[in-house]
Design a protein around this nucleic acid. Structure first.
Lengths: 145, 145
DNA sequence: TATTGTTATACTCTATAACTATA
DNA sequence: TATAGTTATAGAGTATAACAATA
């Protein structure tokens, strides 16, 4: 049997802790959405479409950092569930203008409450300043690029 | 075209920033290891085997949070490359005792230097206290479970 | 020529079930 | 009966290439 801390050589890396924290929060995030039959990606898509009415699939792909080809099937599903609509655009007949339906908005708002609850549980011991400081550092990290 | 911040509805969530920071660092992490033909998982496996001589595949799986079945093929690869050895254990003939070879240790050390460099670049603007504070918060998050 | 949406495909990661040999 | 290692397989998620319609 290995010792109590077989991961000790990795603990010196910030990235290791970042990954573990992300994994941990992600599984709880997924769980908080399953009862609404949403996944992180479909929830994020709803959020972005709702915030950006008439967004195209290409722009949605960019916002979600996904391939356009993979957006198609997800948009198909959201449309089949009546959560969004694909409207034709007269000025450019190649593109679709995506919009949330009232049903989509309702589901998005309910999901947002669930995600909020999940975050509050997650950050239970964090003071507001700590929370802000954490976000600030996370943003700084991704800006190094 | 969407606005400049199509993701604004998601920015209120800490988990969103955590994911983005993780994604960002992860791709750079992967890039820092490719020249040694290592992936995050194989590097971590080397690290854990090196720190825990004679660890079993089952315990390695637990430490890496991977399935035992998926460990097999990875251990096969590390063994085929001469980085680790599978020794038989007389007291329990079901298990293998994994150990890094001198070649494996050498590669691990070189990879560790590469990862260190990657982390230093990533955390360039971070004071030592900030860095410690970040790690402390990340650990706190994953302990909420 | 370039771009949007689309299809098909492949590749990686991960998860599950069933088997064998040992305990 | 339980466990270690193994095999095969299936399911996500993601990436690439090629195509028709339109710009």
């Amino acid at each position: 049997m290995a010792g109590l801390s077989p991961d000790s050589p990795l603990r010196g890396f910030v990235g290791y802790h970042l990954k573990r924290a992300y994994m941990s929060i992600h599984s709880d995030f997924v769980a908080s959405l399953t009862h609404l039959d949403l996944k992180p990606t479909t929830y994020s898509a709803l959020a972005i479409i709702n915030e950006n009415p008439d967004i195209s699939q290409t722009d949605l792909a960019r916002a979600l950092a996904m391939e356009r080809s993979n957006i198609v099937v997800m948009v198909d599903e959201l449309q089949a569930r009546g959560l969004i609509v694909r409207n034709k655009v007269p000025t450019d007949r190649r593109v679709y203008a995506l919009r949330t339906t009232s049903k989509g908005i309702e589901l998005f708002l309910e999901a947002s409450r669930a995600v909020k609850k999940h975050e509050d549980k997650l950050l239970d011991g964090f003071a507001p300043e700590e929370r802000a400081q954490l976000v600030e550092m996370l943003i700084r990290i991704q800006q190094v690029k």
